[in-house]
């Protein structure tokens, strides 16, 4: 189990940031992802593996509309 945006979220061995975003259907182009408070650049989404118990944030930047 991990925390995603401070809510419980399913986890499995080898889960990457890229996969997590896909699983959550997070398709918005301006998302800022951090794992344990460290920002992950977009190029590293596929290579960043999330560990059990990690705190992940996927902040959608839009206060607009």
């Amino acid at each position: 189990m991990i925390k995603l945006n401070n809510r419980d979220c399913e986890w499995h061995e080898g889960l990457t940031v890229e996969e997590l975003l896909r699983l959550k259907n997070y398709t918005y182009p301006r998302i800022v992802v951090s794992v344990n408070a460290v920002i992950v650049p977009e190029e590293a989404y596929a290579s960043t593996v999330i560990e059990d118990g990690d705190k992940v944030e996927a902040i959608h930047l839009m206060a607009g509309g």
Binding site: N5, N6, R7, Y26, Y28, E57, A58, I59, H60, L61, M62, A63, G64, G65
Partner: peptide, 18 residues
């Protein structure tokens, strides 16, 4: 009219304003 505030992502998805 949402031109005052659009907070859906901040609230629902990001959970930034619990």
């Amino acid at each position: 009219q949402h031109d005052e505030a659009w907070l859906i992502f901040m609230d629902m998805v990001n959970n930034q304003i619990p």
